[in-house]
Design a protein around this nucleic acid. Structure first.
Lengths: 219, 219
DNA sequence: AGCACTAACTTGACACTGTCTAGTTGCTCT
DNA sequence: AGAGCAACTAGACAGTGTCAAGTTAGTGCT
């Protein structure tokens, strides 16, 4: 663990003012550093997990001083929120990608979306955790709200052909989302050795409540 | 927010060496400070959320210096793990308490356990988040493992009369746990204004997959 | 009783975090 | 060409967890 973090912080900051590569263009174009900081954050997250992510480290990796991010984000929460928004974008794409790979049949599509959900959680562990972290995020951020809503919408569409109990398709959405999210969290916990073999080798399809999903006559 | 944290840290540390109250007994008995630190942590958590919880603040509230906790816990993670273990104990009790309030019928008992799960999450917000936080906890800790396992066992027992699909009661456990945990997380998110009215006023009973829960002939 | 031993605790230092302020640099517009 | 301004640097601050060294009080041994 220490090794990972050491290697993460090993890239030291060199002032761009003394840079030999681009002696003419000293300052970045607007929006450039913003993107660089987000990318740096996602990299750090993937390499060293949540512990490796900090404002100062993002700045160092992007090649700027520790106070530079303040000109592009409202504090750490601003940066983290931007990273998370980017995460939701990728999240949405993963679910859609998985859905498009399958046949055009409601049940198969919904299962594929869930598979996308779980694959994203598996492949982007730290990012996934951060995306559902209740702390340090700016939940008022418009970009965040939009991207999170878009991700949810994929699942909503996948649930639309189904109805569940008296709550209709609204209930189906919530049930499926709860189920798949809970399953993702629990699988993650076991995968990381944070819990003992609670989820053995059970696939999500076996967990889906098969009988309770009924075709809705409407739409 | 700042007000809350200010009031939290307002209780300043006074050296017990200069204490007037107990001039004779200067040092605590073994195990005494340990308990005091855990209690302080739970208090801080309840008062100011996760942000208010820190090793130094626990120490200050317990009336000792910032380095004192090191003699009772392996770093912050040790303290947090102890707090979380205490949380799981309370969690288990809440579920059992709710279960015992209802009639002796499998379906009602399982619903009651779930209600206990959700009530605990509602009433102990920050603690609940910490309990399922993937960071900063010592997952090797024996007490933690034991308490977490005990909590899970309550749900397992509640699911025992049921079987789900081909996975048997094992599948039921995982399904119910995923469902109720996911629902707790999503409800929390909405409650805290971290998401837009995704979970309207749907009760968990409406989410439970009613038809897929079948009586198992065995046991 | 006296004396060493040790666990519990304090004090101070360190590296790291995010944030704030003041100063500098370089692009742009007129 | 010069003013204005956004982007960035440098330094300081309070807060965090952790470590090393010193002190204090209770325990066991002779």
């Amino acid at each position: 663990m220490a090794n990972i973090l050491d290697s993460v912080k090993s890239r030291i900051y060199v002032s761009p003012m003394t840079s030999f590569e681009t002696p003419g263009k000293m300052l970045r174009r607007r929006g450039d550093l913003r993107e660089a900081l987000i990318s740096a954050g996602i990299e750090l997250l993937a390499e060293g997990g949540l512990e490796a992510l900090s404002l100062r480290r993002c700045a160092a990796r992007a090649g700027v001083s520790h106070a530079a991010p303040a000109h592009h984000f409202k504090g750490v929460s601003g940066l983290l929120t931007a990273i998370v928004a980017r995460g939701y974008e990728k999240f949405t794409n993963t679910m859609i990608e998985e859905r498009e790979k399958t046949v055009d049949e409601p049940r198969a599509r919904l299962e594929a979306i869930c598979e996308g959900y779980l694959r994203f959680a598996r492949e982007n562990d730290a990012l996934f955790v951060l995306m559902f972290s209740p702390q340090k995020l700016d939940f008022e951020d418009q970009d965040f709200i939009q991207q999170a809503e878009a991700a949810y919408q994929v699942l909503v569409e996948g649930c639309a052909p189904f109805r569940h109990g008296s709550a209709g398709s609204r209930g189906t959405e919530i049930m499926i989302w709860s189920l798949v999210h809970g399953f993702a969290v629990l699988s993650r916990r076991e995968r990381k050795g944070e819990a003992d073999k609670m989820v053995p080798d059970i696939r999500f399809e076996q967990i889906l409540p098969q009988l309770s999903l009924k075709w809705s006559s409407k739409q």
